[in-house]
């Protein structure tokens, strides 16, 4: 028994050895860096980091900047639409494919392939289609509907929706696959039972199967949320924040302030507000889900 105990503690030590990279990543490259950037947000850093204390001046400048508020609220508009779009469409497609008897692989591939493309490619591709002077608007007009209008890409009020539209195209497939797997893993006996009771198929999905897939939903929300905070590429490639700054997002705003404008202090303040927002949203959800599962 003592020997086994010793061996276990030796193995524990080795486990810690194996965890060194994770520790370095967690404490240095993630949270250490985050702390350093938080520190920069209270310095007078311009295009080079410096260490002169600046109090809350960068935050004040940030909160007085209209551009920031546009970018910040865009993150929620985009995030909300993106999550709703990907999950809504993904679940819908998963159910449709589940109903299929053949050709399942074909449709699955069609819906999933965009995920393999980069968001830069996604943005550039949709840019051509959504551009009113060469894309959908032009095609429909040439087909005879001459006053057809679809100029969201260049409309300050709607540009952010086109970003969600392109991003949903990119992200739906993964969600569909996750839910499809979830649906397939539910007990087939359910179908026999409900058939006897003559319950319509859609009710089986909505009332019986989907409620069992809370864990899948958690995974989906996490994977998509991860994309929302990193929504830099698709914005740069599709609208570059335009027209003006109507479709700007915090990720791009911060990048611009770091490097183009050389206002590292204010950019860092923006980054801190971003991460604080994310933590405020993710942490309670994560906590709640973990508690639920442990119960």
């Amino acid at each position: 028994m003592r020997i086994a105990g010793k061996r276990i503690s030796a193995n524990r030590a080795k486990a810690w050895l194996a965890l060194i990279p994770a520790v370095v990543v967690a404490f240095y490259f993630i949270w250490g860096f985050a702390a350093y950037t938080a520190y920069l947000s209270v310095t007078k850093s311009t295009f080079l980091p410096n260490h002169e204390f600046n109090g809350a001046a960068n935050y004040r400048a940030l909160f007085e900047d209209d551009r920031w508020w546009v970018a910040y609220s865009n993150m929620f508009i985009f995030g909300g639409l993106y999550l709703a779009g990907c999950i809504g469409l993904g679940v819908g497609l998963a159910i449709l494919i589940d109903r299929l008897t053949g050709k399942e692989a074909l449709f699955r591939t069609i819906y999933l392939y965009p995920m393999s493309l980069s968001l830069v490619v996604t943005g550039l591709a949709w840019q051509w289609i959504l551009n009113p002077t060469i894309g959908i608007q032009k095609i429909v007009r040439e087909a005879g509907v001459e006053d057809f209008k679809f100029n969201w890409l260049v409309s300050p009020d709607h540009a952010i929706y086109t970003i969600a539209f392109a991003a949903v195209w990119h992200g739906t497939g993964l969600i569909m696959i996750l839910f499809l797997a979830g649906i397939k893993s539910t007990d087939p006996e359910i179908w026999k039972a409900t058939r006897i009771d003559r319950i319509p198929a859609w009710r089986v999905y909505v009332s019986i199967i989907l409620p069992q897939l809370r864990a899948t939903l958690l995974t989906a929300v996490m994977l998509l949320g991860f994309q929302v905070v990193r929504s830099f590429d698709v914005v740069v490639a599709l609208t570059n924040g335009g027209p003006g700054y109507a479709s700007d997002v915090p990720a791009r705003y911060v990048f611009e302030y770091f490097f183009q404008r050389g206002e590292i202090g204010q950019g860092a303040a923006g980054a801190v507000v971003m991460v604080a927002t994310m933590i405020a949203i993710v942490l309670p959800y994560l906590y709640f889900e973990i508690r639920r599962r442990e119960a």
Partner: peptide, 20 residues
């Protein structure tokens, strides 16, 4: 100076794109 350039660009752009 960068401040002047940015002020002109920011304002012109915001007005032009109907943000303000």
């Amino acid at each position: 100076s960068a401040d002047v350039g940015n002020a002109i660009k920011d304002t012109a752009s915001a007005l032009w794109n109907q943000a303000i």
